[in-house]
Nucleic acid binder design. Sequence first.
DNA 1: CGAAACAAGCGAAACGTTTCGTGCAATCCG
DNA 2: CGGATTGCACGAAACGTTTCGCTTGTTTCG
Lengths: 339, 339
Amino acid sequence: MASTIKDIASQTGLGLATISKYLNGGKVREKNRVAIERAIAELHYTANEFARGLKTNRSKTIGIVIPELSSLFITTIITIVEDILRRSGYAILVCDCRTDAHLEQQAVQFLINKGVDGLLSMPVSQDGSHLKPAIEKKVPVVLIDRMVTNYREFVDAVMVDNVQASHKATEYLIERGHKHIGIIIGPEHIYTSKQRLLGYRQAMNEHDLANDDATLRYSDYSVQGGYESTMQLLTANRHLTALLVTNYDMTLGAIIALNELGLKFPQDLSLIGFDNMTLSQVVRPQLTTVAQPMQQIGQHAAHLVLSRLDGKQEGAATIVTLSTQLMEGASVAVREERA
Amino acid sequence: MASTIKDIASQTGLGLATISKYLNGGKVREKNRVAIERAIAELHYTANEFARGLKTNRSKTIGIVIPELSSLFITTIITIVEDILRRSGYAILVCDCRTDAHLEQQAVQFLINKGVDGLLSMPVSQDGSHLKPAIEKKVPVVLIDRMVTNYREFVDAVMVDNVQASHKATEYLIERGHKHIGIIIGPEHIYTSKQRLLGYRQAMNEHDLANDDATLRYSDYSVQGGYESTMQLLTANRHLTALLVTNYDMTLGAIIALNELGLKFPQDLSLIGFDNMTLSQVVRPQLTTVAQPMQQIGQHAAHLVLSRLDGKQEGAATIVTLSTQLMEGASVAVREERA
DNA sequence: CGAAACAAGCGAAACGTTTCGTGCAATCCG
DNA sequence: CGGATTGCACGAAACGTTTCGCTTGTTTCG
């Protein structure tokens, strides 16, 4: 049906090897070049990637495994990554594992079977066991946003300093006179959740402020979860004067909850959200947020995997750590020095 | 390096064909089955998809070409589609073409070269010329959300009744006494934009209301674009009492613009947005929106492509048209019968 | 002019599957 | 009991590339 390299060879009267060489950027005589190009156009030839992959064991494809696709934080990074990779001739294969470690494992195996040349992972699994097939097959891995406990010496990583991020935000609230500060964090087993909780606790402890189970709620990084946790936390804990919500979607949920409870920020409650998305501009008063450097995360991740593929980078694992920025809005009130 | 079917054959003392048959669900003698399974486990065998694809010309992969990844409308649909396809053993390969018809063309070609078994497209190109490689190779195509002018008889489609959608919304405003209604629509050449404009015009004309260039702005379906267009439209056109914004991102932008102009809805301006996302709940007062049936769109798209692949569906193109729902919020005011 | 050096072309083998046609043994039935 | 029928198993060929080792043709230079 479709034409093959053989058809091009017989059409032009050249050998198979010559056509192949041309296709792979080798030198051919000028008049052969035009002949080949004409034949390709006439026969609508396109290389069969299966055959090519079978021979070369390379697919010019990078796999990306993420916990979910419906997150602006994630899709923004993916878009940046794809832009850079495409310029180097790589395409991406995205797998959404629904924050399910089992599906994540399958996704990696699937991508490895598909012969991806590299793997980017924003892991759900804490220990990184899902990466095994990639490591074994020596496919370079770059972690995004989250660290794992195993295989550390075999993977590069682009991290955000999450401890610092929530520490900064908490301290910002404390400096403005808040003593009863609540926090909504992500799933207990997720790396970034732990880090963000840690930063909060450090800041609170440094000022001898209470930060026990009563002031925090574990949630699931979703809008719905953020809504429910905020509802619970605020109704159970009426003397909180400030709330830190540690990702974008939960921040949305928190605002819905505040609306329903009839609480206005910053008058009734001060609020700091995470991820400086459009939201912070849409909501009035403007939201104070912890902004993550998505652009940079994407760029570093793409370049790390590319330099492994080039062979430019060998050996020791590289870890890039980026810091966040506190974007001041008007959602935090200054409290009188008493109470 | 990695083990092959041959290794399994020699390990078990069986023939190549037998192993292959087992792998593809064929019948083998019980004791051979256990022998094969043991060998596979011992040797960590996984099938080489390149070789398999080369022989079968099938990849168990569906390509999806979308205008952008950072759109909740799109990622929600993709997630639903993927869920259904995965249950039938298919994976998805997503290409974001940045609303660029040229990139879109390349994306389709790329996916076809990768040997996808089916193609879902939310087209940027109006005429559908990008679909050519798929049609020629007889790869089933399902359009999502947007129609094209060519190849209509060769592709299935899942559409939303966009004329009706904006007609309903416009009429809702008219019924509540609005006579000066503005509209922000998407790019002039995009199918859904045209349809939504048409519905608006029909409704306005039916009530002899002005709907010339002064009451509308073309934009680009982005937050930034929605913001700018709203700014322009409202400052140039101060007697508008209502505004219809025809997608989610532009609705966000419009709200930012209203905030900056110090206009409150519904007091100063009535507002209807598109796509019933979290936004409409976060914003107070709650937004009245035109909700698209994303769940159903995804389900129909997935099932359409699957039934083409099963061979269950042959011949004539199927077009599924779904209708939208007007979700009443509190962003529309009732106007006195004068002015 | 002729040898050396180089450029470009060539066929064959190999990559790891699936599938076709055939072979062999066990089972069935009259 | 013998021939027909079934149920698996088998090896070989084929899918469309890339690559290795050679050959052929062209240029260079003493």
